[in-house]
């Protein structure tokens, strides 16, 4: 195998990978996880959940939702930096009403530490609020 042949194979490999990545990335989305299935084993992992807003509290521009997906409730935290960025992009989560459906994606955390209370810290991506 000569050098140019090896280079051609490497280029073919990259192009095939790019094409495959382009096609496969279309179908790539985190599947929502039932809230009931989120346990302390998930702490530190990124999960997506979808549920209806039951409560909404705003404190120092941080937004705290409690959402329910018919299996369980969980608290969703959106810190002010994230919430402001989302508002700038037209996703004003401060105006979300109770009863709206949202699908946050974020890290599972326990707060206060050792309490057993789990929450999801939403960091990126639009929250629908439909």
């Amino acid at each position: 195998m000569e050098e140019h042949a090896l280079r051609n194979i490497a280029v073919l490999c990259s192009v095939a990978g790019l094409l495959l990545l382009f096609l496969a990335s279309e179908n790539l989305e985190l599947k929502p996880k039932p809230i009931k299935e989120i346990t302390s084993d998930d702490i530190g992992k990124t999960v997506k959940v979808c549920g209806e807003i039951i409560t909404k509290t705003i404190s120092n521009n941080h937004v705290f939702f409690t959402i329910n997906d018919s299996t369980e409730n969980i608290r969703v935290v959106v810190f002010n930096s994230t919430a402001m960025k989302l508002r700038e992009k037209g996703n004003d989560i401060y105006s979300f009403e109770k009863g709206s459906m949202i699908c946050p994606t974020g890290i599972v955390d326990e707060y206060p530490k050792g309490s057993g209370y789990l929450e999801i810290i939403h960091k990126k991506g639009f929250l629908s609020g439909d």
């Binding site: 194979i9 490497a10 990259s14 990978g17 495959l20 496969a24």
Partner: peptide, 29 residues
């Protein structure tokens, strides 16, 4: 980080492996 590792995920990461291998080989050459 990807607890639901399914068919879509393996295909995407195989594509990533192909790209990484191809580009690495080209740069190394």
């Amino acid at each position: 980080i990807l607890p639901d590792f399914g068919f879509n995920e393996i295909i995407v990461l195989m594509a990533v492996a192909l790209i990484a291998a191809g580009i690495s080989a080209i740069v190394m050459l």
